[in-house]
């Protein structure tokens, strides 16, 4: 059984453009083309698109997802390989969270310094701090 691009898009809740984008990124390809040249997808394509969407939800980029799909298809890979990739992604996410927390703290300090609601912009402590450089936001 095959599906047109529009049918796949509606079944997995993405747009046809997204599917074409996945194809350009090397993540997905049609199983065949119709006589009229339209892309036709099989059940494996549906499975891959769901896989891509779920992996994106966990923070994986498309190139990382391609590597995961390659791992899934590899005879030599095992669960430990996938687990290591997941742990590395978690480390990257935690590192980003750390940076974002530092940003939020820096903003807390600036907001606390800005006590006037109607002061002129040339003495705005937030803008002045950006001119001088905000402490605590650089790693």
């Amino acid at each position: 059984m095959t599906f047109t691009i529009g049918k796949v898009a509606s079944l997995v809740h993405v747009t046809p453009d997204t599917l074409r984008y996945y194809e350009r990124a090397g993540l997905l390809g049609p199983a065949a083309k119709s006589k009229g040249g339209y892309r036709l997808y099989d059940h494996e394509a549906l499975r891959r698109v769901r896989f891509i969407k779920e992996a994106q939800q966990c923070g994986f980029t498309l190139s990382e997802i391609r590597a995961l799909l390659d791992l899934r298809a590899s005879d030599r890979a095992c669960c430990t390989d996938v687990r290591r990739v997941a742990v590395e992604k978690k480390l990257q996410l935690e590192a980003k969270i750390k940076v974002m927390k530092a940003m939020a703290k820096a903003l807390d300090r600036l907001i606390a310094e800005c006590t006037s609601e109607s002061g002129p912009l040339n003495v705005c402590p937030i803008l002045m701090a950006f001119d001088k450089g905000v402490k605590g936001t650089r790693q």
Binding site: R84, V87, E88, K90, L91, Q92, E94, A95, K98
Partner: peptide
């Protein structure tokens, strides 16, 4: 084990294992 020492690993900047 990075899963036991996640905070410390992040603090040092470990991203790859």
């Amino acid at each position: 084990n990075v899963l036991d020492e996640l905070d410390y690993a992040v603090e040092l900047g470990v991203l790859i294992l």
